Computed example of a mutant assay.
Amino acid sequence: MNIVVLDGMGGGIGSRIVGILKEEIPPYIEVYGLGTNALATAAMLKKGANKGATGENAIVVNAGKADVIIGSIAMTMPNEMMGEVTMRMVEAINASEAIKIYIPILPENNYIVSLEEKPLLLQIREAVALIKKELNL
């Protein structure tokens, strides 16, 4: 069983997700840190991701093998994160049969109505609790 954490740019969100996951889930579940760039991947590995890989192809290949995918909702929007998110990545993430959990951090001038604004740490903790519930942990 594996959980894929997606992030780009500096890897700040992904590294926080990895850190909390590693505290909350059993050690037999592997956490993969997949970054759109090497900095994001390195940040997730530093926080304890079991494996890490970088770039479009790594995300495309591993999204199809994931049991759970978690990351910013911006990872489902082509050209976001300053152009780091490609159409191939978005297609692979959306086509994956994995459980998908999105942190509602949106690019500028994008909104989702009816979501309660909460601090990032609380959103990540809620996402990890949802993963545990979905995996019966």
Rank of each mutant, 00 (worst) to 15 (best):
I3L: 12
I3R: 13
V5P: 04
G8S: 10
M9A: 08
G10K: 15
G11F: 11
G12H: 07
R16C: 07
I17P: 08
L21K: 12
P26N: 07
P26R: 08
P27F: 09
P27A: 12
V31W: 09
L34T: 15
G35D: 07
G35L: 13
A38D: 01
T41M: 09
A42F: 11
M44G: 10
M44D: 02
L45T: 07
G48R: 06
A49D: 06
N50L: 06
N50S: 15
T54Q: 02
E56Y: 02
I59H: 03
V60M: 00
K65V: 00
A66L: 00
D67T: 08
V68S: 07
I70E: 02
G71Q: 04
I73V: 12
A74Q: 14
E80D: 09
M81H: 09
M82L: 13
M82N: 10
G83V: 12
G83I: 10
T86V: 01
T86F: 04
A92Q: 14
I93K: 04
A95K: 03
S96P: 02
E97N: 13
I99K: 09
K100M: 03
I101G: 05
P104D: 04
I105H: 02
P107N: 12
E108L: 08
E108A: 04
N110T: 12
I112M: 02
V113N: 04
S114R: 14
L120T: 00
L121C: 01
L122T: 04
L122R: 06
L122Q: 11
Q123T: 07
I124M: 13
R125I: 00
E126D: 15
A127L: 07
V128G: 03
A129H: 04
I131D: 13
K133W: 06
K133Y: 06
K133Q: 13
L135C: 12
